[in-house]
Design a binder for these strands. Structure first.
Length: 383
DNA sequence: GTAGGGTTAG
């Protein structure tokens, strides 16, 4: 059963739910009884696709027919999905019913709920929930502290967050690297780059080891503080393991200030360090090239990202820029180029997206309708 | 290495 469950987990993680169901059927045929470890990943698979109704149906089936009722982990998966959908009343309902349904909310349940509230701007309610949780005798974990600090940062109570960090030395509220990263990230966002450096020294003094994320926040902070050369030497001296985020941060910064030779150096450093560029790298290039009016180069950059097997998400960014600059021939040329290259499919979703972006840019007005028509012709493959 | 859940960076 653990072999089958592992396989089902893997299939669900990559969104191959029909095959996961196939494996489930197969194990039933073999007389191998599924357990809660087998069903929960499928529940999560539905949740990830936003099919919360189907997830709940499956949980009802587990309870009534399969003789393996959902447990706290299954409920936590469902609660995460309900939070993402903003259905907080349903979550509260689940918690009040938990006793009769035979499961007990855990620290993870409360962490999930508090984080969900915080993500939707309900930091205050999250802090109330913290009180409820402590009242039940549940001990906070390092996750709880990070979620709580995130809540405080979003509620613009950053000084409260810093106060907690400074005092968090007890084992009950231990501030680890993630806790520091949370507050440092928020300070960086607000432009308080000196505060970021202060926390970096604090954490090192306390014996909390910074990780790559920490350094990436520090690097961005140094850039904001106009200490780009310090940022660059931190990377060059290999004081930490730089990754694609590190390079994207620096590339965006130098590109923004039009220091293209620096961008070139960074790209060759990446190649030398065997760090592959990703969607974000290409997005930086496309956005910056469009800003400088270099739409042809931006388009070829997008096509290159497709050749490298990256997703279509960047097309929305590019089309948006083209639409707002009224670049219809360039848009049509992208379709032609995509048609010419094998394996690149032009489907309705691409056309929907294009029309939507052009309309939003004002092209649904009568006087521009012939311009839209030329795009429609290109979609139909007419010259 | 030991089947499923919760946090942070571009």
């Amino acid at each position: 059963v653990s072999t089958y469950s592992t396989l089902i987990t893997g299939l669900c993680r990559v969104g191959r739910l029909p095959e996961a169901w196939g494996v489930l059927e197969c194990m039933l045929e073999q007389g191998c009884r599924p357990m809660v470890h087998t069903y929960t990943p499928i529940v999560q698979g539905y949740c990830r696709e936003g099919r919360v109704g189907e997830a709940m149906d499956l949980m009802a089936m587990m309870e009534k027919c399969a003789g393996c009722p959902p447990n706290v982990v299954t409920y936590n998966v469902l609660i995460r999905a309900l939070c993402d959908a903003g259905q907080f009343n349903e979550v509260k309902q689940l918690l009040t019913e938990s006793r009769t349904k035979g499961w007990t909310p855990s620290i993870v349940t409360y962490n999930t709920f508090m984080n969900g509230l915080c993500q939707k701007g309900k930091a205050k309610e999250a802090l109330v929930l913290l009180g409820v949780m402590l009242g039940k005798g549940l001990d906070p974990t390092d996750f709880t502290l990070s979620i709580l600090l995130n809540c405080l940062c979003h509620a613009s109570r950053i000084s409260h967050a810093r106060y907690l960090l400074e005092r968090s030395t007890s084992s009950r509220w231990y501030a680890g690297v993630v806790a520091y990263n949370t507050v440092m990230g928020r300070l960086c966002e607000m432009g308080h780059w000196r505060g970021v450096l202060k926390l970096l020294t604090d954490m090192i003094k306390k014996g909390v080891m910074p990780n790559t994320r920490t350094f990436n926040i520090v690097i961005r902070s140094l850039c904001i503080g106009r200490k780009c050369s310090a940022a660059k030497s931190l990377v060059c001296n290999k004081g930490f393991a730089a990754n694609v985020v590190t390079y994207n941060t620096l590339i965006d910064w130098f590109f923004y200030h039009r220091k293209l030779s620096e961008v070139g150096h960074l790209l060759s450093d990446m190649a030398a360090g065997k760090i592959a560029v990703d969607e974000v790298t290409y997005t930086i290039f496309v956005v910056r090239l469009c800003r400088d009016g270099n739409f042809a180069k931006a388009s070829s950059c997008f096509l290159k990202s497709l050749e490298n097997g990256l997703s279509m998400d960047l097309l929305g960014v590019l089309i948006n820029r083209l639409a707002y600059s009224g670049k219809i021939p360039e848009t049509i040329r992208i379709f032609q180029n995509m048609r010419e290259r094998k394996g690149l499919s032009l489907d309705n979703s691409i056309f929907d997206l294009t029309i939507e972006r052009f309309c939003r840019a004002g092209y649904c007005h009568d006087k521009y309708i012939h311009n839209l028509n030329s795009i429609l012709d290109a979609m139909l493959g007419k010259q």
